[in-house]
Structures are given as C-alpha cells and as structure tokens.
Design a protein around this nucleic acid. Structure first.
Length: 217
DNA sequence: ACATTAAGTGATT
DNA sequence: AATCACTTAATGT
C-alpha cells in the first residue's frame, strides 16, 4: 500500500472506523477516490449525473436547491461522517442531481464509485446499516428544512441559519455579507439587514461589515 | 479624492 | 416580507 493510500486509510478509519468493519474501511481506502475540495468549489451541480457517493472526511458541504429561474435556497449541511442520501437514490436510479453541492470550507471526501455502492449492500452489513441510517437522518433533515421554510418566520429562519452556519465552520464569527445570506435564504438583502438589526438589538449577534458574531449559540 | 461595495432606513405594496 | 429609492459608512485605488 502506497503512502497516499495509507493516509486515506487513516482518514477513513478515523471517521468511519467505528461504523464499518475493518475489511470495508480497507476497501474504501483502496477503491475510493480521495479528493480535496477548496472552499467555494462546486462538487456537484443541478443536472449533472452522479459519478459516485461522497463520504465526508473533513470540512462541510452545503446542499442547495435551485429552480429553473436560478432562485436558490439552502437545504442542509453535510459534515464529517455524513454522506449525501440524494446521491444514493440518484446513483441507484441513474438519475441526475436535483441539487448543488458546494464546499462550505476546505473539505476532504472519498468518492465511492456507483458499482461498489450496490455490491457492498449485500457484502457488508455495516454498509447497509449506514446507508439506511443516512437515508433516515437525511429524511429528518428534509422535514426540518421544510418546517423552516414553511412555518418559521424569516427572523427565526435567519437565526437558525446563522447558528447552523457557525456550527459547520466551528466558529461563531462568520465572514459574509447580508447579500450572501439573502441568497441562501432566498430573500432580499434589505430584509436580512433589517432582521439582522433586530437580532443585534436583541443581543443574539454582534454585526460588522463583512463579519458577524453569533453570541447565543 | 474618488469609486465601489456593504449596510441602514422610510415609504409603499 | 418584498421592493424601491435613497442615505450613510467602510474600503480599495
């Protein structure tokens, strides 16, 4: 095993060693496609065919839904140990992605080719459990996203967004503009600015230009 | 000093 | 909550 594979093996073992049996960890490290993704890079875009299933080793990806008019809205984040359930259903059905995946920060993933995703289901019990559990967790995330969009007022959505964001980058200080936040929430910058002012007055955040700190996590 | 970009605000729908 | 129109503030050249 080369130096590169050894490193990938360690990463996989660190993040998935407690979920997968040793043989599977070894196989993932051997056949998986290790990739480093720079922050902001688009890993998958709407309409693209899936090549495999990404397992997050470090960093975070944000999953965005985009409609035909180019309006977009943040669905949820993928963090280490997570995988994209969407990719599973899509790969199995040979469908195209309905979402966009963008690296929220510098991330490392290992991509599992389609062929293996299928054959491992019968070969490894831990793989099967993991896939089904991921599907379930992601389904819960979906419901949460829908609740957030449908039932929460914009100010609550904003606060939830800021807290989620602070969590995935593991830093209460966020470097972003009101406009960028507005894109993720599919609202206008003016609305974000107004609500941000309210949150600031209520002591939830401390805001500055291009920067804000989430105070009550 | 000037241009550009981010953020704040009143008024209207 | 969205949009417009405008102001103010911060930052880059």
């Amino acid at each position: 095993m080369g130096a590169m594979n050894e490193k990938v093996y360690q990463l996989v073992d660190e993040n998935y060693g407690f979920v997968f049996e040793p043989e599977l960890v070894e196989e993932i490290a051997r056949i998986g496609n290790f990739q480093r993704i720079k922050a902001g890079m688009v890993l998958m875009d709407v309409g693209e065919a899936f090549v495999g299933m990404p397992l997050l080793l470090s960093g975070a990806l944000k999953i965005i839904r985009e409609n035909h008019d180019g309006d977009e809205i943040l669905l949820y984040y993928l963090e280490r140990g997570d995988t994209c359930a969407m990719s599973f259903s899509c790969c199995m059905g040979d469908k195209k992605s309905k979402v966009r995946a963008v690296a929220e920060e510098d991330s490392e993933i290992v991509m599992i080719p389609v062929e293996y995703m299928d054959q491992w289901l019968s070969k490894y019990g831990s793989w099967k459990s993991y896939v089904f559990e991921s599907l379930q967790v992601r389904m819960d995330e979906f419901i949460e996203s829908i609740d957030s969009i449908a039932f929460l007022r914009m100010d609550e959505r904003l606060l939830k967004y800021l807290r989620d964001k602070a969590r995935v980058v593991s830093d209460p200080v966020l470097h972003m503009t009101h406009q960028e936040i507005a894109y993720d929430l599919n609202t206008s910058r003016v609305v974000v600015s107004r609500l941000m002012k309210k949150l600031e007055n209520a002591g939830y955040v401390k805001a500055g230009r291009n920067q804000l700190e989430v105070l009550k996590l």
